[in-house]
């Protein structure tokens, strides 16, 4: 039975010229990179929004979104709920966790006479608690994420793309465009930008910055919830440890894109994804993370403010 499979759909390599095949492979890899990168972008936007309004890195972001996503995954596998509902569950759970984080880790330390980095430590504490809770509730093991609704591939000439990659890329890009327009155009979006630039001035101009912060933390976490589901779709499985490892990718992008710069985070994520994948494709997979981080270091030598950060903000 595997035998027919073996010879099945074997595309004839002779019909494409050598150069055509190399180009096709390149584009295939670029698309792989963009798919991975779009999930990095969404994660990074979460860090970036919070960094913007609070000037602080939320070290619990990774744990928050993976917690939301695994909860949603369980509603799918245990209760048989559909994927669209899983998106909502993930967003809701992540948002609530974000809100609790704001209440417990950020707010009590705001405007108090504590060291500048105190909230960083309190978010690490929050992350540890979530990690332990996840191990207790879900176990540390990886759980399969059903990708059946998006099985199959689409062919564009020599390039084949998994349908699920299309979905991921589509959802992530759409979300980022909507988010970008929302931040640029709406009143609350302007309030977030104003608070990011200078919280005291924003407050004096009548913006209720405390509420803006709560909203931003919840928004960032909710976006993480969507990213978590997309990660599940992309990799076919979720596990608690992904919060930490992918969180680091998001952090890298936060810095790469220019601290607190939302479009920078979006583009930075895509760039990191493509660079990573190309470094595996045309270099040594052993050095995947090293290459990515080396690139970030080089960028900092050339542009200390990050790729898209402006001089004054950095």
């Amino acid at each position: 039975m595997r035998k027919d499979c073996l010879r099945f759909a074997k595309y004839d390599s002779d019909t494409h010229g050598g150069r055509g095949r190399i180009a096709a492979m390149f584009w295939q890899q670029v698309i792989n990179g963009l798919t991975v990168g779009s999930t990095y972008s969404l994660i990074a936007v979460g860090y970036t929004l919070i960094f913007g309004v609070l000037g602080m890195i939320n070290m619990a972001h990774g744990q928050i979104f993976i917690f939301g996503a695994i909860t949603a995954l369980l509603t799918m596998t245990e209760l048989g709920w559909p994927l669209w509902l899983a998106f909502i569950i993930s967003v809701v759970v992540s948002s609530i966790l974000g809100w609790i984080l704001e209440l417990t880790a950020f707010k009590p330390l705001r405007k108090k006479d504590v060291p500048h980095l105190a909230p960083l430590i309190s978010t690490i504490g929050f992350a540890t608690v979530l990690d332990d809770l996840m191990i207790k509730l879900f176990g540390a093991d990886s759980r399969a994420f059903p990708t059946e609704p998006f099985g199959g591939r689409v062919t564009f000439g020599p390039v084949q793309i998994r349908v699920v990659d299309f979905v991921i890329l589509g959802v992530a890009l759409l979300l980022m465009i909507v988010l970008h327009l929302w931040i640029e155009r709406t009143k609350l979006g302007k309030a977030i930008r104003a608070t990011s630039e200078n919280i005291d001035t924003a407050e004096i101009l009548g913006i209720p910055t405390d509420r803006v912060i709560v909203f931003t933390v919840v928004l960032a976490s909710g976006l993480g919830g969507i990213a978590g589901i997309l990660l599940g779709l992309a990799y076919g499985a979720l596990m608690p440890s992904m919060g930490l490892t992918l969180g680091f990718k998001g952090l890298a992008v936060l810095v790469l894109g220019g601290l607190g710069n939302v479009p920078g985070a979006m583009l930075g994520g895509l760039i990191l994804g493509v660079v990573e994948v190309l470094s595996v494709a045309y270099g040594q997979s052993t050095y995947r993370d090293a290459v990515a981080f080396l690139m970030i270091m080089i960028i900092f030598f050339i542009r200390p403010q990050g790729l898209f950060g402006s001089q004054e903000k950095a």
Binding site: Q29, N32, S241, T245
Partner: peptide, 15 residues
């Protein structure tokens, strides 16, 4: 090849 804890293998598998 890839590393422990990797979740994305698309580049290797494409090759």
């Amino acid at each position: 090849s890839f590393a422990l804890n990797d979740v994305d293998f698309s580049a290797q598998l494409t090759k």
